[in-house]
């Protein structure tokens, strides 16, 4: 068994019962597919293959069709995220206030581009549209914390601080 599969199984064991219990509650309700997928993602942090199979069994829709729904919506992901989720806003206000240069700075600092996760599994970099605080643009969020009025230098400093903290914790 590959490491990935093993990991999947381990997480699976932990939450499988909760997830399944919740799954059964939904049985029969109209239009339950998206809430079920959201449930799977809330439980596991992403949608593992076995969850698709379980949902398929319960709602009686083929896995392939469920897969189609998953890939249609940007919210769903088939791979786990890094520990720190960096969401850079590329909404209109942030765009005209220089989001691109912030994006470049972060890409450079982490060595990854949008939609990628660093090899150490620490950072995932995503681009989103409008975080709703345009007056602070350009803006990014790292997990639940918002950072506004960014400059490329400020963004780099913020990322470096996170990196430093990670090093200190592991040391």
């Amino acid at each position: 068994m590959t490491g990935e599969k093993q990991k999947e199984k381990d997480i699976g064991k932990r939450d499988f019962i909760d997830f399944n219990a919740a799954l059964w509650k939904y049985n029969g309700e109209k239009g339950a597919m998206i809430p079920l997928l959201q449930l799977a993602q809330d439980t596991y942090g992403y949608i593992p293959e076995f969850a698709i199979d379980s949902i398929s069994e319960i709602v009686g829709i083929p896995s392939a069709e469920i897969y189609g729904v998953i890939t249609f919506y940007s919210q769903f992901r088939l791979k786990p995220f890094g520990k720190y989720l960096i969401r850079i806003c590329e909404g209109t206000a942030c765009h005209v206030n220089g989001a691109k240069s912030i994006l470049r700075a972060i890409e450079d600092e982490l060595g990854i581009t949008i939609d990628e996760t660093t090899d150490d599994g620490m950072f995932t970099f995503l681009s989103v549209a409008c975080l709703g605080c345009c007056s602070l643009s350009p803006v990014m969020m790292i997990n639940e914390d918002t950072y506004g009025r960014l400059t490329p230098a400020k963004a780099r400093d913020i990322i470096r601080n996170y990196k430093k903290n990670i090093k200190e914790v592991t040391a």
Binding site: E90, G91, T92, A93, H95, A129, C130, G132, C133, C134
Partner: peptide, 10 residues
């Protein structure tokens, strides 16, 4: 959906 708007949210 407008990527630069937040009226409804507010």
């Amino acid at each position: 959906g407008d990527p630069g708007a937040f009226m409804d949210r507010s």
